[in-house]
């Protein structure tokens, strides 16, 4: 089985993020691998361990932070890495990313594409699903379990509205993974050392066999025009002291001030 996973660099959401004049203040931000992509990498590596697979990751971007997350993917057990680095790709929308991964897929004859269910910076959750639609491949999103069934099929569990949905997919297929699927491994020292030596296959859009125009880059479907501060809630009243007393007080407030019970 040939598996392709996607990894994206995202801002570390644990740090403070400030907005000024409609833009995010970049100073002091740090970048990490999207948490759900870590689950995607782990899923690929576990499938490889169980079923003999060749695993490739694709990353769109440039710079040290992207190199760092690619090396992390290697250290977790990914075999090959493709990086699409082209200056035209700043601020692309989900459909353009999907078009790029479509090209990568078409150049590589993969059996399975695994993406995170969403990225922590946009929280959009569209790229994997749109990609499947472009490719005309079956797709299940938000999966929490996967297993290979012979060479041609996979069985997946998806967390849906009515419960856990169990589906069988014909390969090639696309899945997007929830964090409930696994606990991403911490790379061992040996893996980290080996990851440093591995080659990253870097290419621009021409190298990929496409162009900004062909991807629809000149006319994005949507554009972020402004960032705003979130409306944060104010801390309310906090009570400390005798449990019986303060609990009775709070129940009184819930009933008579907030009027919610």
């Amino acid at each position: 089985m040939k598996i392709l996973t996607t990894i994206k660099k995202v801002v570390d959401v644990e740090l403070n993020i400030n907005v000024e004049n409609g833009a995010i203040i970049e100073d002091g931000l740090q970048y990490v691998m999207n948490a759900w992509d870590e689950n995607a990498v782990e899923t690929a590596v576990q499938l490889k361990e169980k079923n003999k697979a060749e695993t490739t990751l694709v990353n769109i971007g440039s710079g040290d932070d992207n190199t760092k997350i690619i090396r992390k993917g290697f250290a977790m057990g990914i075999d090959n890495a493709i990086q699409i680095d082209d200056p035209a790709l700043e601020n692309s929308d989900p459909s353009i990313y999907a078009r790029i991964i479509q090209k990568v897929y078409e150049n590589g004859e993969y059996d399975l594409i695994i993406t995170g269910k969403q990225a922590q910076d946009t929280d959009s959750g569209q790229t994997g699903i749109i990609l499947a639609e472009f490719l005309g491949l079956p797709c299940v999103s938000n999966i929490i379990d996967i297993e290979a069934v012979g060479d041609q099929h996979i069985k997946v569990s998806r967390l849906g509205d009515a419960g856990t949905e169990i589906l069988e997919l014909e390969l090639p297929a696309v899945v997007t993974v929830s964090d409930g699927i696994n606990e991403p491994r911490l790379p061992a020292m040996r893996g980290i050392m080996m990851a440093k030596k591995k080659k990253i296959n870097v290419m621009d859009l021409a190298g990929l066999g496409t162009s900004w125009e062909e991807l629809g880059g000149g006319s994005p479907q949507s554009e972020i025009t402004e960032f705003l501060k979130s409306e944060t809630r104010q801390a309310g009243q906090k009570f400390e002291g005798d449990a019986a007393e303060i609990t009775a007080k709070v129940v009184d407030l819930l009933a008579n001030e907030a009027k919610v019970i």
């Binding site: 929280d123 479907q221 949507s222 972020i224 402004e226 960032f227 705003l228 979130s230």
Partner: peptide, 14 residues
Amino acid sequence: PAIANKVMQKIKIN
């Protein structure tokens, strides 16, 4: 909202 609700985005639809 984006980035785990830390910011809001305005997006123009083309």
